[in-house]
C-alpha cells in the first residue's frame, strides 16, 4: 500500500512539481494551498507525512506545523519544510517550530524522496 503525502504550498507550480515527483516515486499525494487549508485537509485525511512550504498567506508553514503539533491526533506526524536555504538559523527555526526535517528547493526529486523515506517507516 503506497504512502500518502500531504503537500502544502501556495504556489501552483510547486504543487504540480511536488505531485509530479511524488506520484512518479509511487506516493499518493493530497494537497493544500496554505496552512489553514492544510488543517482542513488534515481533519479529513491522515497522511503518512506532510511536506509544507514556509511562506504562505493566511497561515505560514511554521504556524501550520505548530498547529499540527498541538493536535493530539497528529502530534507526532512527520513534517518536512521546503526551504530555499539551509543555514543553521533556518534549521533552528524549523526545528523550533517542530519540523521533523527539511527539503531544499528547488528540490531534487531524489532528495525529496530520500527525505520522506528518512521520516516514514
Amino acid at each position: 500500500m503506497s504512502k500518502t503525502v500531504l503537500t502544502v504550498d501556495d504556489s501552483r507550480t510547486m504543487r504540480d512539481m511536488l505531485k509530479h515527483s511524488l506520484v512518479a516515486a509511487g506516493f499518493r499525494v493530497i494537497q493544500a494551498e496554505d496552512g489553514v487549508h492544510g488543517l482542513e485537509v488534515l481533519a479529513e485525511e491522515k497522511p503518512d507525512v506532510i511536506v509544507t512550504d514556509i511562506n504562505m498567506p493566511r497561515m505560514d508553514g511554521f504556524g501550520f506545523i505548530e498547529a499540527v503539533r498541538r493536535d493530539p491526533a497528529n502530534r507526532a506526524m512527520p513534517m518536512l519544510v521546503l526551504t530555499t536555504e539551509v543555514d543553521a538559523e533556518k534549521k533552528g527555526r524549523a526545528k523550533a517550530a517542530g519540523a521533523t526535517g527539511w527539503i531544499v528547493k528547488p528540490f531534487d526529486p531524489v532528495k525529496l524522496v530520500d527525505a520522506i523515506r528518512r521520516v516514514t517507516a
Binding site: 503539533r69 502530534r75 507526532a76 519540523a99 526535517g101 523515506r117 521520516v119
Partner: peptide, 14 residues
C-alpha cells in the same frame, strides 16, 4: 526528537 516526528529506527536504518 520523537516529538518532532523523527524515529530512531528510521535513522539507524538509513
Amino acid at each position: 526528537l520523537y516529538a518532532k516526528g523523527n524515529e530512531a529506527a528510521l535513522l539507524l536504518r538509513e
